[in-house]
């Protein structure tokens, strides 16, 4: 474990916590009387969260952590896997099933057919992988899928007029975690002999590059102290 990877895991954890906080805010909103302005904004405007991206991430974790009970790495590793699995599936459940939260989900805007991402990633994983075994192919599939899983969310943000802070921070943290992982891979390449994982490195690089324009608008909105807005 190195500082880059720990920082990456903590950033990833933060992104999940921000999303859970946002869902909690929406839930607690419904109990209050209506005049509360925050509630009005939250419940009237769409939450800006893409269910498609959340479903893709649940699939990413389900296919990546198949070895959670067979290969024990460390207590930290197992606990983090359980947190990511538990949070991703419960977020999908909230947006799909929870009577309040699902009202803030705008399915007319979140129209990305994520099936078109799953199939190519699966085919690619069958062709390009480190070892042609069931677990390894699904693990590689989870890497390719994670690289593109943010697309429905980024497209939804372009369509969302006012992106609220929590959503912007959620996407930023999600992009930052993989950028920190790239530093971790560079560090491990120079400190561990024979540590070479081209598939992981390239997917991680593609994933981070997909956030490039979001990062640009995110930082310029911070610098100019204006609301985050993505060009359509």
């Amino acid at each position: 474990m190195n500082i880059f990877r720990l920082a990456g895991d903590m950033t990833h954890l933060m992104s999940v916590l921000v999303l859970l906080l946002k869902i909690h805010t929406i839930k607690s909103c419904a109990g209050k009387s209506y005049p509360c302005s925050l509630c009005f904004i939250l419940l009237e405007s769409s939450s800006g969260i893409s269910l498609k991206t959340q479903e893709l991430y649940a699939l990413v974790f389900a296919t990546r952590y198949l070895d959670i009970f067979t290969d024990f790495i460390s207590v930290y590793n197992t606990i983090m896997k359980l947190i990511f699995l538990g949070s991703s599936f419960s977020i999908v459940w909230y947006i799909r099933r929870h009577k309040i939260v699902r009202r803030s989900y705008d399915k007319d805007q979140d129209t990305f057919r994520h099936f078109f991402l799953v199939l190519p990633c699966l085919l690619l994983a069958l062709i390009i992988n480190e070892k042609f075994t069931f677990k390894e192919v699904l693990w590689t599939f989870s890497l390719y899928l994670e690289a593109v899983a943010i697309l429905p969310q980024l497209i939804l943000l372009q369509r969302t007029r006012n992106i609220d802070n929590l959503t912007g921070q959620y996407v930023f943290l999600l992009g930052a975690y993989r950028a920190l992982y790239i530093l971790n891979w560079i560090y491990r390449y120079f400190t561990e002999p024979h540590y070479v994982h081209w598939i992981t490195w390239i997917s991680g690089l593609v994933q981070t590059l997909l956030y490039a324009d979001f990062f640009y608008y995110y930082f310029s909105s911070l610098k100019n102290n204006v609301k985050l807005k993505l060009p359509a």
Binding site: R64, I73, K131, T133, W139, Y181, T200
Partner: peptide, 10 residues
């Protein structure tokens, strides 16, 4: 035999 390279990253 050495067990297959377990993926130690999340």
């Amino acid at each position: 035999i050495e067990d297959e390279a377990a993926h130690d990253e999340l």
